[in-house]
Amino acid sequence: MDQAGIITIISVALIALGLLFFLGAAIGLFRFPDFYARMHAAGKGDTLSSLLVVLGFAVYQLHDFDFTFSTLEFNLQSWKAWMFHGDGLIILIVLKLIAICAFIMITSPTCTHALMDAGWEDGIEPELKEKGANALAKDIDG
């Protein structure tokens, strides 16, 4: 199998896995019992699946990439040609997509956390096995 085929398979696998997690997050959002459990599903599923999908895009960009670096020689001119007119442009796109990954990884969990905290301060009760004032503490202990 040639390079483009392998790269396509890897990227499609990553994107499909990401979509699977998206499905899990969506089902969790509808089926979990209370606000906190739902946010947990949305936060975790969303983060991982967006990461996987964007990573799949990044891998897909490499389908024309020359992994042998055959055009690259040890002089400034060939480096410039590689960077500004050749495969360097692909690397640029891949780096941008990886940067998006990094930002999703930082912001998405924080966003979920801030929403949950707002819910807790607003007095949304988590659904617990045992009702009552100290039910959460008991649930954590036992």
Binding site: F103, I106, T107, T110, H113, A114, D117
Partner: peptide
């Protein structure tokens, strides 16, 4: 406080 640390740090980075 805990809210401030997590959200504040993220915003400080971003």
């Amino acid at each position: 406080d805990h809210q401030r640390i997590i959200v504040g740090t993220t915003c400080k980075i971003l």
